[in-house]
Design a binder for these strands. Structure first.
Lengths: 144, 144
DNA sequence: ACATCTAGTAGAGCATGTCTAGTACTAATT
DNA sequence: AATTAGTACTAGACATGCTCTACTAGATGT
């Protein structure tokens, strides 16, 4: 299943857009949003699950390896902080929460995302014009 | 200079979005649009120049290496066809034009782009909600 | 003579994402 | 009691797409 558009099959995805399951480079704002929406610190595993519900991944769980690596990178950048949670029973797990820098970054992302939207909209208009067709209405997109 | 958003400097780009000069994976629809808008076949060099004027790259010329490689890949996929143009004087140059498959693909891209827009819009809304702020108005974005 | 423009190519590297596969412990099912 | 599914995380290999540096080579301009 695909998140962003809704091709009937893998074939069509490859034909059409040559994209992966998610928009590239937008897992960071997705993670920031998930953490900003949560009162408490979250484990990576939970973040993966919530990400599946976000518009970016629209139902299908993102690859955990990628998310864990992104979390680590974001912590290195100072956007997140984490503490090890070592319960008596069960595996050790890391709980992530936003730093002030993370909140600032998300704030900036909101503007960036608007710019992306505008840019993509312009490209879409130009493409329609070039084909000499009217801008078609927004199709049914997400899987939720 | 950046194409999509308008950060004051490289620093801010890195802080904010960790993105390159262009939205990832959208150079293909950009190229398709440029070719669809042109009556005649275009040289790679000209495509690079026109790309600089498109919303995706907003003024700054994209890396020619990347564009040439993408053109080759698109030809391999049957979206483009090319002929060598070997004038008496001057270097040999390749002229690209759209195939029927390329036109079909651009048509599908128009829907895909709408989905991207919608997805990014939803993410933006969720981010604003999570921060407890009103959805700010679309900022000034592109450089043209 | 030197710089700039046209037109393209080669190779290295980075960021991001994907795939396969594993560890380890718990809880529910058969 | 053994198997399966769920929680929680890690490692390595690979693919894709973009970026950077650097190069060839002819044409045109100063």
């Amino acid at each position: 299943m695909w998140s962003v558009c809704n091709p009937r099959n893998e074939e069509e995805l490859r034909e059409c857009a040559q994209l992966g399951r998610s928009l590239s480079r937008l897992s960071q704002p997705t993670i920031l949003t998930i953490l900003a929406a949560s009162e408490e610190a979250l484990h990576g595993y939970v973040i993966v699950q919530r990400a599946a519900l976000s518009p970016m991944f629209g139902g299908s769980k993102p690859d955990p390896t990628g998310i864990y690596r992104t979390l680590k990178a974001m912590e290195d950048q100072g956007l997140l902080s984490s503490v090890w949670d070592t319960p008596k029973s069960g595996p050790a797990k890391r709980a992530f929460s936003l730093t002030d820098a993370g909140i600032q970054t998300l704030r900036r992302w909101i503007d960036s995302l608007a710019c992306y939207q505008a840019t993509i909209g312009e490209l879409r208009e130009e493409a329609s014009q070039a084909l000499g067709i009217d801008l078609p209405p927004t199709p049914l997109c997400s899987a939720h």
